[in-house]
């Protein structure tokens, strides 16, 4: 029950993109086409779950016992960067079709604030290992949902008559604002 709440909380109620503003750059940048949104969402979810595990272990078995909490930010970002690189290598070796689908998105994930944000939130909220993994999966699901919804809307918007000044990022942000309003409705769920 607790785990389900964490998952739903991260996925819809406190959606990473629409209520914490984490991962906005890819949200605006990659949400133009539905197919790339799905790939980006999957790649990010994968990295989020891996990050949740790796940073939790790092904190619990290395930084915590050695009282090196002040190195948290440096250590976490290095882990994220290494992880992304590693995931890229593994996918390239094992599954070329998957690599072709996700390849160009992977390097972008290092500077996706959702990933480092997840690692920091896990520490702030003092989650356990399983909780962290579920939280990571929920955050990834939330990111994917927001990205895909936005991509769907933007594909429709191509046919709409948007005022010239608002074309591009402007209208995307206004749509995101409307989506955030809609997502506020989920707050009653937990």
């Amino acid at each position: 029950m607790d785990l389900l709440l964490i998952f739903i909380g991260a996925a819809v109620v406190n959606n990473f993109v629409l209520s914490y503003f984490l991962g906005i750059c890819p949200f605006i940048g990659v949400s133009g086409r539905f197919s790339s949104a799905v790939s980006m969402g999957m790649a990010t979810t994968f990295v989020l779950v891996m990050t949740a595990m790796a940073t939790w272990l790092l904190q619990a078995y290395l930084l915590g016992p050695l009282h090196l909490d002040y190195l948290q930010t440096v250590a976490f970002i290095l882990v994220v960067a290494a992880l992304v690189q590693f995931v890229e290598m593994v996918i390239k070796k094992t599954s070329p079709p998957l690599y072709r689908a996700l390849g160009i998105f992977l390097p972008l994930i290092t500077t996706n604030c959702a990933v480092l944000g997840l690692a920091l939130f896990i520490q702030l909220r003092e989650y356990g290992f399983i909780q962290s993994v579920v939280f990571g999966a929920g955050a990834g699901a939330g990111f994917t949902i927001a990205l895909c919804l936005m991509a769907g809307i933007r594909e429709e918007l191509e046919l709409a008559d948007v005022p010239p000044s608002l074309r591009g990022a402007g209208i995307t942000l206004l749509v995101a604002g409307t989506m955030a309003l809609a997502f506020m409705g989920f707050a009653g769920m937990i």
Binding site: L18, S19, Y20, F21, L166, A169, G170, I171, T172, L173, L174, A176, G177, T178, A180, L181, M184
Partner: peptide, 12 residues
């Protein structure tokens, strides 16, 4: 959060 998106969108 919604207001943040809307305000920035209009500013842009």
């Amino acid at each position: 959060p919604a207001g943040g998106f809307l305000t920035l969108g209009l500013i842009l």
